[in-house]
Write a protein that binds this DNA or RNA. Structure first.
Lengths: 138, 138
DNA sequence: TCGTCTGTCACCGTTTTGGTAACAGTTAGG
DNA sequence: CCTAACTGTTACCAAAACGGTGACAGACGA
């Protein structure tokens, strides 16, 4: 799935914005909460903005806010925004091998990846950012 | 989930052993099919052996074979054998922050991880190595 | 005893990851 | 218009992860 911590940080970020829904929050405040630095976080925010999950305003007094109501943003939306690869990292089976197992492995792993992706999607779609805020943040 | 290709290689390995069920296969032959080198693969085999999925015999004519019938080994068994961390890599939210979101994030991510883990387990339990061989390998 | 195989360790180069600085561009407010 | 404050983006770095490889002791069949 996600071999880096960006999904985790993005969830944190979205919850922070949802908790302050309506306000513009600067990357410095957000970075302090997430536990990273503003510059790195702005990169993550850019990705979420391109996915239509976050709005930002530049200039003095600028910052980030949710692009839509927190109740309409699911974890799947966040996941898809960051998705760069499939759930499984796949090795390089020797497709030209005389071993029949190797020749079929690519298809097998492709299908397995799709099945896991679907399963994850169904699970992630069931939770919205608003759900998380309601359940966990007082 | 699995940030490396070992699950992918392990599935390949188990299918190869299942396809040759009953025979002892050397790490060289297996490595050739998987597309890696024997030494690295022996490390992976060791992990699967400790998990009780594979038997090995040392010495001349030695090699690996399935420890149980392929129909009794699920992908969850393979996954658990390799499991070193949780599905999500989690960042380090500033738990001591004055931001309430940060203070609750650890619990939130922990629960999310458990939910995803359960979802994956249910999915992976439904497929056995024998299923894969039957469906994909002629 | 000899040849062949596994088990394990140590080491290496590459890639990935997250952190950081720098700076141009944008905007509110005087 | 000018300044201060903020974002957007790039480039670069150190640390960690990853997979590959060689080496060698130990096990075992012949």
């Amino acid at each position: 799935m996600l071999s880096n911590t960006q999904f985790s940080m993005a969830v944190h970020l979205m919850c922070a914005l949802a908790w302050n829904e309506g306000k513009l929050i600067g990357s410095q405040d957000l970075a302090h909460s997430v536990g990273t630095n503003p510059s790195f976080l702005r990169g993550l925010i850019s990705v979420l903005r391109e996915a239509g999950l976050v709005d930002t305003r530049q200039g003095k007094g600028g910052g980030s806010t949710l692009a839509r109501p927190a109740g309409t943003i699911t974890l799947l939306d966040v996941y898809r925004a960051l998705e760069t690869s499939q759930p499984l990292k796949v090795h390089r089976p020797d497709c030209g091998s005389d071993c029949i197992v190797a020749r079929r492995m690519k298809n097998l792993l492709h299908d397995l990846n799709e099945k896991l992706e679907d399963t994850l999607a169904i699970e992630l779609k069931q939770t919205t950012v608003a759900d998380l805020v309601t359940e966990y943040i007082t």
